[in-house]
Simulated assay, not measured.
Amino acid sequence: MTKFVDSAIVQKMCEVTRQSYERYWDERNGGNVSVRVLDEEVAGYEDNTAVIRSFELGFDASAIAGYYYLTTGTGRYFRNVFNQPTLDLGLVRISEDGRSADLLWGFEDGGKPTSEFPSHLMSHIERLKVNPDQRVVFHCHPTNVIALTFTQELDERHLSRLLWKMQAESLVVFPEGVGVIPYMTPGTTEIGAATAAKMGEYQAVIWPHHGLFASGVSLDETYGLVEVIEKAAMIFSQVSAQGGVIKQDITDHQLQELADAFGVTPHPGFLEV
Rank of each mutant, 00 (worst) to 15 (best):
T2Y: 11
K3H: 13
K3I: 09
V5N: 01
I9F: 01
Q11F: 04
C14I: 09
E15W: 12
R18P: 00
S20C: 14
E22S: 12
R23W: 03
Y24T: 09
R28M: 12
V33K: 01
V33L: 15
S34K: 02
S34Y: 06
R36W: 00
L38Q: 13
L38H: 07
E40S: 11
V42F: 04
E46K: 15
N48Q: 10
V51A: 04
S54H: 08
S54M: 07
S54V: 07
F55T: 10
F59Y: 13
A61K: 02
A61N: 06
S62V: 05
I64M: 01
I64S: 03
G66D: 10
L70T: 00
L70N: 02
T74R: 10
F78C: 06
N80F: 12
D88T: 10
L91P: 08
R93H: 01
I94N: 01
E96I: 08
E96S: 14
D97C: 10
R99H: 04
S100N: 07
L104V: 01
G106W: 01
G106Q: 09
F107Y: 14
D109G: 09
G111H: 02
P113F: 06
P113I: 03
T114S: 15
S115N: 12
P118L: 10
M122S: 14
I125Y: 05
E126N: 04
R127C: 05
L128M: 15
L128R: 14
K129M: 09
V130P: 03
Q134R: 10
V137W: 06
C140K: 06
T143G: 04
V145Q: 02
V145T: 15
A147G: 10
L148G: 05
L148C: 08
L148N: 06
T149K: 07
Q152M: 14
L154Q: 15
H158Q: 11
H158C: 10
L159H: 07
L163D: 00
K165F: 05
Q167W: 06
Q167D: 11
A168H: 11
E169C: 09
E169Q: 13
S170R: 08
V172W: 04
V173R: 05
E176H: 04
E176P: 02
G177I: 00
G179M: 05
G179K: 00
V180K: 03
Y183I: 08
Y183R: 14
G187A: 13
T188D: 10
T189S: 11
I191H: 00
G192Q: 03
A196L: 08
A197H: 03
G200M: 09
G200Q: 12
Q203H: 13
I206Y: 02
W207C: 01
P208S: 05
G211E: 00
L212M: 11
A214I: 00
S215G: 13
D220I: 08
E221Q: 14
Y223P: 04
G224S: 12
L225F: 09
L225D: 01
L225M: 13
V226I: 14
E230N: 13
A233C: 09
Q238Y: 14
A241H: 11
Q242I: 10
G244R: 07
I250D: 01
H253R: 14
Q254S: 14
Q256R: 15
Q256E: 15
E257P: 00
L258R: 07
A259K: 11
A261Y: 09
F262K: 05
F262E: 07
V264G: 01
V264I: 12
P266D: 02
P268W: 04
F270L: 11
